[in-house]
Amino acid sequence: MADDGVLVLLDLPDEEVGQLLKRKVRDLRKGLLLLDDAPPLKAIKITPVQIEGVIPTPVKSDVYQQAEKARRRLVQLGELLDSSQLRESLNITKQAVSAATRANRMFTVEVEGQAYYPVFFADGKVDRTVVERVARLLGQLPGWTKWDFFVSRRGSLGDLSALEALGKGKVDLVEKVACAFHEEMTR
């Protein structure tokens, strides 16, 4: 009976319900950020209570289509560069790009099956070696998650994005927040 799960949930201490909710929100956020890399959305079991988190297919495909449209727009705006554009901008070899990517100093994001590099590796607004150092701190996180770290405003950075904070010389703070972000996303 479905009501049994609700009654069990209502009997849990508030702190435990809060922890369950927080985990659920974190999982949902990861799923939205990592549309390409996230497992299919389906029932998620959380002990001791089972809470089903099914997002209907039309909603999922609509969100996916909106994300893809926004990603295509980033390519059109020049915010994302293909490998040859990046190499030309930086005047480096294909091998150097590959080595930096393997070492997590650079990363790619996928748009319609093609890999792109964020323009901030090449635009010179922030010292590339600093950007690469921060990217490396983000480890093996998927590219779109790393993108989110660099471009989204964060309270922990004084309501600046990581790129804005780096531009203001707050390198140590950004590195500290990058480590915390990596830890949070890999829990």
Rank of each mutant, 00 (worst) to 15 (best):
K168T: 00
K176G: 03
T145C: 13
L33C: 00
G158H: 06
L138W: 06
Q76K: 11
E88I: 04
G158E: 02
L81Q: 01
Y117V: 03
R153E: 06
Q50P: 15
S89T: 07
A122P: 11
A99E: 09
V54Q: 10
G78L: 10
E15V: 14
R23G: 11
W144E: 09
L166D: 03
K42P: 01
S61C: 01
L21T: 11
Q66R: 14
D123A: 10
V8W: 01
A103K: 14
E183C: 04
D172W: 00
P58I: 07
L86S: 01
V54I: 15
W144R: 11
T101W: 07
W144G: 00
N104A: 03
P40S: 11
L173E: 12
A165V: 08
A135C: 07
V17A: 06
G167W: 04
Y117Q: 00
V119I: 15
P56W: 04
V63R: 10
L157Q: 04
E79H: 09
K22C: 07
I51L: 15
A70N: 10
E52S: 12
Q85W: 03
D62C: 12
M106R: 08
G124H: 10
D37G: 14
Q85H: 06
V54C: 04
P118T: 09
D27N: 13
E112D: 15
T93C: 07
K94D: 14
L138T: 06
L33H: 05
C179V: 15
A103N: 13
R105W: 05
P142T: 01
V134G: 00
A162N: 09
D82K: 06
L137I: 10
S61A: 06
L21V: 15
S98A: 14
E132R: 03
A67D: 08
L28P: 05
K24G: 12
R72T: 03
L35H: 11
A103G: 10
E15Y: 09
E184N: 07
V111I: 07
K69N: 09
S98C: 04
L12V: 07
G31A: 13
V174C: 05
V8Y: 04
V59D: 04
Q19I: 15
K125T: 15
P58N: 09
L166E: 02
T108E: 03
